[in-house]
């Protein structure tokens, strides 16, 4: 009688297992290291430039020593404006998809459109904004062209996050509301949206971060000049943001201290985004603690 084969793990398979576990850990740690090096390098380069006068001075066009005051203002202004445009549209579309569209072809098609818009490269959106707002509407490079085009970038993100947050609202709560005789709109406004608000808010902060960092769209719609007035709330003037400024001084090269300005601007942007990230995390934690 032949002996039954012995199934024992071979030495090599154990070795491969060990090795691959190590590789997976190494890759993961590599990303952590990359991030730390990245943020560290940006902050280290920008640190010597970062001071109050850099943040509060007007930029120079030919001489060294300019600041980034109007760019900070324009960044915030454009983010706020573009969110103001995209929030109602994104919320509306998200509500429609979660609460009205039902399950079927229509919803599928809407999702396809949202996904396509979300995946559309910002340079393509920039071209669209350039044709429509800058040229056809005759608005040239201006805050309004920039805000409207930037809104196109935000809309799919807000729509998606609204839809997902609304779908997470427990059915029981909606039923309770309907059971009391609430209309659909009342149920959405008084029960579903308040419940989904934290999710939507988190998404909104992340969207703001994305809009804050966007450059390709704004180069071609809001322009590479900042108004000489401060603060300039006019929608018709060009509005160079921090990210555009960073790109422009680097690639233009007329400023003698372009390197320093770019480094300082990058550091400011990283600091803003880190604080936004921290804010989201803190809000998230606070909410989780409250609801527990």
């Amino acid at each position: 009688m032949g002996a039954a084969p012995v199934f024992r793990r071979s030495r090599s398979s154990k070795l491969v297992d060990r090795l691959m576990r190590g590789v997976l850990w190494a890759i993961a740690i590599l990303f952590v290291v990359v991030l730390i090096l990245f943020v560290g390098a940006i902050l280290k380069q920008g640190w010597p430039v970062l001071n109050l006068s850099f943040l509060t001075k007007m930029p120079e066009t030919l001489d060294a020593g300019g600041g980034i005051k109007p760019q900070i203002f324009n960044s915030i202004y454009l983010v706020v404006l573009s969110l103001g445009i995209s929030l109602p549209v994104g919320l509306g579309a998200g509500v429609y998809m979660a609460e009205y569209a039902g399950k079927g072809r229509a919803l599928n098609f809407l999702r396809l459109c949202i996904e396509t818009l979300a995946a559309t490269p910002s340079i393509v959106l920039a071209l669209f904004g350039m044709i429509v707002f800058v040229q056809a509407m005759g608005w040239s490079f201006s805050i309004r062209s920039g805000a409207l085009t930037l809104a196109l970038l935000n809309i799919p993100v807000i729509t998606r996050v609204t839809e997902v947050s609304l779908l997470a609202v427990p059915r029981e709560l909606k039923e309770a509301s309907y059971g009391l005789g609430a209309t659909k709109l009342q149920t959405i406004l008084k029960v579903a949206l308040p419940y989904a608000a934290t999710g939507i808010l988190t998404g909104l902060v992340l969207t703001a971060g994305r809009a804050f960092g966007e450059s390709a769209i704004l180069v071609f719609t809001a322009g590479t000049n900042a108004s000489a007035q401060f603060p300039d709330f006019r929608l018709t003037v060009p509005g160079e943001t921090l990210s555009v400024h960073l790109w422009y001084v680097t690639s233009d090269g007329t400023l003698p201290d372009a390197r320093e300005i770019a480094a300082g601007t990058a550091a400011v942007m990283i600091l803003v985004l880190l604080s936004l990230n921290l804010l989201v995390r803190l809000v998230d934690r606070a909410i989780r603690r409250r609801t527990r």
Partner: peptide
């Protein structure tokens, strides 16, 4: 580690492309 990786990825995705560009250019 899972939490750490999530945060790392969140931060990496949030960094603006011009900042990636300047990092590539200067580092």
């Amino acid at each position: 580690m899972r939490n750490l990786m999530r945060q790392v990825m969140d931060l990496l995705v949030g960094i603006p492309s011009v900042v990636y560009g300047i990092f590539g250019l200067t580092v």
